[in-house]
Amino acid sequence: MHRATTTGERLYFRVAKNVGCMLLSFRTTMRLLTHNMLTSHVKGVTNGYPLKLQAENIKVMSVDFNPEFVARMIPKLEWQALVQAAESIGHLGDLPRELMPEYESNEEFLKMAHHVLMEVEVIEGNLECPETGRKFPIKNGIPNMLLNEDEV
């Protein structure tokens, strides 16, 4: 019984700490990594990829660099879509347009990819379905992917 109480207290303090941080800054969340994975799921769409990214408000955060994770994610990415998205919001930087061979061991390249994938975040904007032109609004860093009843 006593042990349970202490765990509860510890959790409570953790929460209290988080609420404290909330007052200082809002962590916003729509990375280009996520954008690269998103497709349109409107009814009848055959190729809803890539979603056109229109950003009104962008934030660059610093995130811990994890080379292993970035290297693991690169084969899953659509590189052209990433380049396109990064270019459309003006954060392409020095990222090469073509995926280079043996990128796993190229730390400089992984760092650039990490910056574009993990650190550039869209706060306000729109995601547009390339086929139907349906817009999914991004508010406060959260894309709203809810469909209307006639789009399911």
């Binding site: 929460v15 988080n18 609420v19 941080c21 909330m22 800054s25 809002f26 962590r27 916003t28 969340t29 729509m30 990375r31 990594l33 996520t34 406060n140 860093g141 959260i142």
Partner: peptide, 9 residues
């Protein structure tokens, strides 16, 4: 978001 979670939402 207020809790500043690391994942994308």
């Amino acid at each position: 978001q207020e809790r500043e979670v690391e994942g994308d939402l």
